[in-house]
């Protein structure tokens, strides 16, 4: 394991609908960053009526130092896989934070500055399994996290999945990663741009 890069509290929220596998995604992402990379990670989720049927969310905090407060306060990365999630959590993003949406479901983002891929459509059409949307998002998120090593992420993902669904999810992960690389460009550049503009300027990367 390489020594982890220094990061001070990087906060991620994975949000969307029940059934999109967001809690599992939180666990997979957290596990890959904690056990695979050696970061400090806390992963929490919303439970309860809120987590049934309707909306669902999982939060991940990553740091190279021990994490005291385990929940998110202001987000560095918001993944929104439904319009409701996008609207309700968008305001929790830091000025320099990034928004990643599923463009199949989120037609009108509350800002012009966001990244998007048609995850739902890709999962259905290119993988042939809508259940793989979460691992596909994990691929895209892996590209966006400058401190994540794609190989380590994939290995950890595979280690955490039962044999029956391993292959199809590895495929989805690879597709998410590839599409993110192709459409979003270099991760360093994305974050530099976000830093420079704040998340609210007009002219930015829209996909």
């Amino acid at each position: 394991m390489k020594a982890p890069q220094p990061i001070d509290r990087f906060e991620i929220r994975l949000s969307g609908l029940g059934g999109q596998g967001l809690i599992t995604l939180g666990r997979l992402l957290g596990s890959a960053l904690a056990l695979g990379h050696g970061y400090y990670v806390t992963q929490t989720q919303s439970y309860g009526p809120e987590a049934r049927g309707g909306s669902s969310r999982a939060d991940v905090v990553v740091s190279s130092r021990p994490i005291s407060y385990p929940k998110t306060e202001s987000l560095d990365l918001l993944v929104a896989l439904s319009p409701e999630a996008c609207n309700s959590y968008y305001r929790l993003l830091k000025k320099t934070g990034l928004l990643l949406v599923d463009t199949t479901l989120v037609k009108h983002a509350p800002t012009n500055v966001y990244l998007g891929l048609p995850f739902t459509q890709m999962a259905k059409e290119q993988i042939g399994n809508p259940m793989t949307i979460n691992t596909m998002v994990m691929g895209a998120v892996t590209h966006l996290l400058p401190f994540a090593d794609a190989r380590v992420m994939r290995k950890s993902l595979e280690a955490n999945l039962p044999a029956k669904i391993r292959e199809v999810n590895a495929k989805a992960f690879a597709l998410g990663l590839k599409q993110a690389q192709r459409h979003f460009g270099d991760a360093g550049g994305i974050w530099a741009a976000a830093e420079e503009n704040g998340a609210h300027s007009e002219d930015d990367i829209i996909v």
Binding site: G30, T42, P70
Partner: peptide, 10 residues
């Protein structure tokens, strides 16, 4: 409490 019980960590 629920937070501690339902937080995942290494």
């Amino acid at each position: 409490d629920e937070v501690t019980a339902h937080t995942r960590e290494k």
